[in-house]
Amino acid sequence: MLLIKCPYCGERAEVEFANGGEAHIARPADPMTLSDEEWAQYLYMRDNPKGLIAERWRHAHGCGRFFNALRDTRTDRFVMTYEMGQPRPDVTPEQAAEAAR
């Protein structure tokens, strides 16, 4: 069971959280102007990366708030969590290597 650091509450067990899929996929401001292909890209297509993923979690059985996390999907090790609305943080090579280890 993962140990996840809620930016608001601190480290808590995974069972308190709900995963919200890949982060930084903003809902288009005006979906009706999108082509079907563009809409499908937004709605369904995912990077599904093997490596660093930016993903959303919600502290569902805690403060209830969404936040983002950077995690390496090869190890499940987190680099960091950060508040919703912040851009995807830069990761140093050392941080990336530590997460991949």
Partner: peptide, 9 residues
């Protein structure tokens, strides 16, 4: 909550 917090904060 998902839409409110992440799309329309």
């Amino acid at each position: 909550e998902d839409y409110l917090q992440t799309e329309w904060p």
